[in-house]
Design a protein around this nucleic acid. Structure first.
Lengths: 226, 226
DNA sequence: CTTACTTTGTGACATAGTGTTACCTTGTAG
DNA sequence: CTACAAGGTAACACTATGTCACAAAGTAAG
């Protein structure tokens, strides 16, 4: 009732993916996706219903089911967009060569940046995962892929003697939960936190844990980036 | 229909809180709480309905509303029980004196122990928080109380020169998300992970971050506890 | 014991959301 | 201009919630 419009979701879904044939179907599909995006930007996922969603388009509620089998499928589509951004932002660390600390720092900076831009969307993903069984499976697979990648990277650095020889997988799982849920906590709702202190906190934790604390002076100003 | 019973929730709600007057009301209340406990032990919270819940008691569905205003209030009651266990298990660290590393280690061991015992209940709390607005507020207050306590403890140790002088709050927030969601990931579903490697991972991350990595030998066998 | 009264329990109802079906409409390819 | 598939709709069946008026059953007092 007292809702002075906040920020709008930045990602927009254009009707035509590649071919210039703008079908009516694609336009409605895009309208649904955009309406969903806008909705989760400012509302909890639990308040999203097919009815309220379609009310903000120019077609009726039951037309929704001509394009998606349910809300979970809409979220799945949006997640593919989010996933791309996250993978792009962090892949340096997994694949790059050079100073591992600097690579990690860069990867985390990218992750925090995406989290800051897409926070509410990220939050809605987790909410959708607890609401819908099928989407939960998709989300879990997403997180597990990170668990695997981070585990591999830790083990590779352990083989080179860069990281102490501990059981990599539980640490990877824990650090990934750290990232995901810290980003949601800090950037999932309006008003968002400042990204800088969050990046410093995450970088401190990851770097201390993996590469040791001797990287830090007394004041952590060496961590400043972005 | 085809439900071969898995493990049962260990916490039981006795009808009489303190006075020996066993009212009929208290018995039904306890039956509801126990049925809820049993349910979330083996099912996702989204599948919990008032109907299915009351079907496993000897009174009808609408009797539920004579005792609770909704499922969220049931979860609130169960959370008070869980909260007590967590606070008991971790309070050493916040208040104790002596070697901070050892205190932290003990606190985490207690936390992992509670998480291991109460994992599915903890998971259902987070699920309920994303489903119900009022319970979400309660859960957030719970997490914030930990954020405040950990922030204070870090700042106290920083004042003594035991911890490097970084911005304590974002680190406290991140480390608390680490704990909560790692415990849910590892112990929230059957079959649960082993507690030992999880404790080692959490201890490594907390201790490295706060007190430095020089505490660890090459193999982390010094961390073994329980 | 029985009367009066509060607590606990019930069936029926109103409401809100989901997903499906059978049937229109429209736009565009032949 | 017409055939017909794709897109859209209204109405329905279903499931869950929460409430209400009323019934039953404990309990306390006389």
């Amino acid at each position: 009732m007292s809702q002075s419009k906040q920020s709008k979701s930045p990602l927009r879904v254009s009707p035509q993916p590649t071919p210039p044939t703008i079908t009516k179907s694609a336009r409605t599909r895009a309208a649904i996706l955009n309406a969903t995006m806008d909705f989760v930007w400012t509302h909890p996922f639990r308040d999203l219903t097919v009815g309220s969603l379609m009310a903000s388009t120019d077609v009726g509620r039951s037309a929704f089911y001509k394009h998606f089998t349910g809300l979970y499928e809409v979220m799945e589509t949006l997640m593919e967009m989010l996933q791309g951004g996250i993978v792009d932002a962090t892949e340096h660390w997994y694949t790059g060569v050079g100073d591992p600390t600097a690579l990690l720092q860069k990867g985390l900076a990218g992750l925090v940046s995406v989290g800051y831009e897409q926070g509410p969307l990220l939050r809605s993903m987790v909410e959708a995962a607890t609401t819908d069984e099928r989407f939960e499976a998709i989300w879990n697979r997403f997180m597990e892929s990170f668990d695997n990648t981070v585990t591999e990277r830790i083990e590779a650095d352990q083989a080179q003697g860069l990281i102490a020889d501990f059981d990599a997988r539980p640490v990877a799982i824990a650090l990934n939960r750290l990232n995901a849920y810290t980003l949601i906590q800090e950037f999932g709702h309006h008003p968002r936190s400042e990204p800088q202190p969050v990046l410093e906190a995450l970088a401190r934790i990851w770097i201390s844990t993996l590469y040791g604390t001797d990287r830090f002076g007394e004041k952590s100003s060496t961590l400043v980036r972005t």
